[in-house]
Design a protein around this nucleic acid. Structure first.
Lengths: 112, 112
DNA sequence: TCGTAATACTTTGATATTCTATGTATATAG
DNA sequence: CTATATACATAGAATATCAAAGTATTACGA
């Protein structure tokens, strides 16, 4: 299992990344994350929905209810332009930190 | 500046990584992180010391006071065997999550 | 030698975050 | 008709965080 901190740090870029691939809704996003991580990351609904609400409040995503004939209502989320910008920003930060870590890992592994 | 979440997620591997390179003490660790990140990550002392205490309590690092002639007392920290194992573990998790993100980034950038 | 800045470590507690638990409701399979 | 999966929502207990304040020593210029 992925640690709490790391989960927290990756939640935003993962959700935005998934939505950049195409619109989706809460329940499906949870499944997609589980699938993408090979089961290593698993969000409960109580964990994910509040994050979606926050991201929407911050204008990174927007939602609209859909009732595809027959199925029950779903709240589809879509990434906004602002959200795309934020994703780029998140990406840059991730690379930044990873680079610091790689410097350290590189140096620590020289002893073979 | 690096986001709070990402800072939180990287604190442990960064500290353990620095100490794996060689013993160090709080004040110097703060400076080293700032230097390594090109100023993008900056810990206040109030942020770092409690983390060191926690890591020591968890047996990932151990400390001993030194009084090199002339200079004031310093609490040097050293990584333990358990700490080295934990670092490997942290590293694996980081790679895991980065791989999920890269999958998403890869797919999102196909549109050129 | 006096004052200031840098070094060095510590702890408290207000503030913010998180996520568990719980609730609602529909669709579907058996 | 019942159990389970789907689908979304939120209160608030529990926890984590970090700014701020405190202590003390050394270095250094005036």
């Amino acid at each position: 299992m992925i640690s709490k901190n790391l989960t927290a740090a990756s939640t935003k870029p993962i959700i935005l990344g998934i939505l950049k691939q195409g619109n989706s809704y809460g329940y499906l996003i949870i499944k997609k994350i589980k699938e993408l991580s090979g089961g290593k990351m698993e969000y409960s609904d109580g964990m994910l929905y509040p994050v979606l609400h926050r991201l929407e409040k911050e204008k990174f995503i927007k939602s609209n209810w859909t009732m595809d004939g027959g199925s029950r209502p779903r709240k589809y989320y879509e990434i906004t332009e602002l959200g795309k910008q934020e994703l780029v920003h998140e990406q840059a930060q991730w690379v930044e930190v990873t680079s610091v870590l790689e410097t350290l890992w590189g140096k620590t592994s020289t002893s073979t």
